[in-house]
Design a protein around this nucleic acid. Sequence first.
DNA 1: CGAGGAGTTGAGCACGGTCAAGGATTGTGG
DNA 2: CCACAATCCTTGACCGTGCTCAACTCCTCG
Lengths: 236, 236
Amino acid sequence: MPDQSNSSHPCGNCAFYRDSIWQPVSSSCVSVLSRGFSRRDLIAGQSLYYQDDDNRGVFCVSKGLIALRTQHHDGTSTLMRLAYPGEIIGFRSFLESRPHRTEARALVGSRVCTVAQRDARHVVQGNPSVLTRLASRCIKEIDRNHERIIAAATTSNKQRLSDILLRLMETHGERTGQFLHMQLPLSRSDLADLIGVQTETVSRLFTRIQADGIFRVSGREVQMLSVPSNKKSANM
Amino acid sequence: MPDQSNSSHPCGNCAFYRDSIWQPVSSSCVSVLSRGFSRRDLIAGQSLYYQDDDNRGVFCVSKGLIALRTQHHDGTSTLMRLAYPGEIIGFRSFLESRPHRTEARALVGSRVCTVAQRDARHVVQGNPSVLTRLASRCIKEIDRNHERIIAAATTSNKQRLSDILLRLMETHGERTGQFLHMQLPLSRSDLADLIGVQTETVSRLFTRIQADGIFRVSGREVQMLSVPSNKKSANM
DNA sequence: CGAGGAGTTGAGCACGGTCAAGGATTGTGG
DNA sequence: CCACAATCCTTGACCGTGCTCAACTCCTCG
């Protein structure tokens, strides 16, 4: 049933169409989807929604990188998730009809597609499979959280920071010879909020990571030696 | 629509009936539920399912306390969740039709109700609201995970261990005068796996927690001074 | 009785928090 | 164009926390 491309469907030309939660739906609902559908381009630093905002729909990251962050009472914040293209955000507040518990902010220029709340509910109601796919995205989020909790308990901060660089490099890196390089889309304090340490510690971790010879970091510029190799570095 | 009690429904006499995910369902599905329904009593230490087991259904903790634990390749393990009465477990593997990623083991004598996989699917298919309620449990799990990730990043291990004792005391504590006391249902190494430290550290944390004067710990016996008070302890 | 598991305690050390100072970069207004 | 502020990032010193290794106690079970 999933098509490879479908110009009548609002997601029909999206690179992630075949994994879209809005697909397949009954043909009568395609027009409801189209009605509720909108695209929005965000520049780096721009917010899609704020913590405590009411839900306005279901959001899908089409390109770029979105940070989901929760603010604490004491002024600190934790970066709960980096949402990559193809991922759904805002589904908790949509499904539970409650305010957002995180703020969604673009870390780089991004595009986000929205299905407005009212129409999204309409489509969900008429197509149980959409709810199944939404539940599946919930479970993916649980799996990510579990991985993060396990990593926090079993992996050193240095290793976890390396892993984050690696993951970002996969998505944002550009190859030059045997090197991958990128503009780091996160500040030191974002990275600190992501692994749960202080910004000073992030600096020190970078120093130690560079000592291993894989990464070179200078401000936001990151370079990575990328010789195909299955030898995992034995970082502690 | 939710009844307070319903003797024809297999969950009809359960204390958690009004929050049951299996309620309400169409009357024709009540009999399907009854067919797939079974109760099981577990003694402390007994497992309900193991990591990598295929899913056999949807489980609901009726009483007791169940630990969900994942084993790592290096022989260590992490305690991902304590499931209290009224909570659903095993829903990820049910919804995704995949093997369990955690092992479920009773920490104290417990009772677990199961709706067999085949019948559960039947009921879910015929009653979209069941899927909605399952999604809601998924989101509760996400919320719990987020709280844990935030706590790990912002709260000291000492405070987190205190919080765990407090939570357990709420459910398992018995009052004697101005004290609550309980048999700690977790070993030192379970607690260590729960907060992500070594067992030796748990011992030392107990020493420091006792120094604050609220808790007294001796082996598995825990006593807590419980004078109603809204003054939060200023532990670091 | 011995074996093994659970829990505690100590010594030494690495890591990360805190506070403080200073460097680098960027944008604004004169 | 320069001066200045603001922000981001780095580095150093000091110290508390927790990891590792090791020894020892207590208890249960065979």
